[in-house]
Design a protein around this nucleic acid. Structure first.
Lengths: 158, 158
DNA sequence: TATTGTTATACTCTATAACTATA
DNA sequence: TATAGTTATAGAGTATAACAATA
């Protein structure tokens, strides 16, 4: 056996590969999003508001796993960019129901396009069958860990 | 076709699954590391110093993709914990050669054990064959994106 | 009194810029 | 002068606490 020592290739385990490749994918997606002057948190919030129209800020914060006070600032940005609206509820005037504007829906479609471009580029080394296999294995892991579909774990301590 | 609207399951693409599952794996590994009072950056640095003994701080910073000034503080912590040593070089007394102490090597083995436990728990939903398949696909992606084996991309803008 | 959204405060984190000591 | 490591400064990000409006 060769000399060992120095740069011993302790082949990375699959769990480490997941964090490594996953972080790289996240970074590249964020880079692409910059063309829309958005970051991943913006994209996730737009997606959530579209999926569940009329959400309150409290509900959205809980869904996204972030503090309501932090959400306020992000929504301020999105509202200033004309992508969402806060509409006071008729029944309870404390709550703000969140909606996408027409421009917000348009932006959401652009995000979808960017996500597809990102995916194609990132998985260029895999053929269609391999991508399906990978997706199936990851879905199994995601389900096992009860990850909410479409929601990136932001992980601030609760 | 059923009613659509609200919570339309726009099935996550494989790229998103990667970032989602990867972030979750990273989080759970970090949690486990807390039992050693270390964080993932510490673990990566110990691993790098062990692999390439006598590294200078400059070289290590470049390898890890972090700023030398930030590395100083992390190394301070590791040195205070008795896991590494800075030894002044004989040839160039400006540079500090980095080494693991006996306790550092011991800790590195504990990290390895924790990493294996983490991997087993995280991949519990997959059988041995599926894990191999997943590792192979991820390795292919990692190679395609020129990710350094064993180094987590910290991604501060350079 | 309890709850929604907001604002304010305090704390952490870290990139950049000085600084020192060697070369 | 140039480089290795260190320290200092400043700015961004954000969790917690306080607050105002409504219930």
């Amino acid at each position: 056996m060769s000399s060992a020592r120095s740069s011993e290739n302790q082949k990375s385990g699959v769990a480490f590969l997941l964090t490594q490749v996953g972080a790289h994918a996240a970074f590249q997606f964020a880079e692409r999003l910059e063309t829309l002057k958005l970051d991943p948190a913006h994209a996730g919030i737009l997606r959530a508001i579209n999926a569940e129209n009329g959400l309150s800020q409290r509900e959205l914060a809980k869904l996204m796993g972030m503090f309501p006070s932090r959400l306020v600032l992000v929504l301020d940005e999105l509202e200033k960019a004309g992508l969402i609206e806060r509409k006071a509820s008729a029944e309870d005037r404390r709550t703000h129901m969140l909606h996408l504007t027409a421009r917000g829906k348009e932006t959401l479609q652009n995000i979808g396009r960017i996500a597809r471009e990102h995916q194609d580029a990132f998985c260029a080394a895999l053929n269609a069958s391999e991508r399906e296999t990978l997706a199936a294995l990851l879905s199994k892991l995601a389900a096992h860990h009860h990850l909410t579909p479409g929601v990136h774990p932001g992980y601030r301590k609760l």
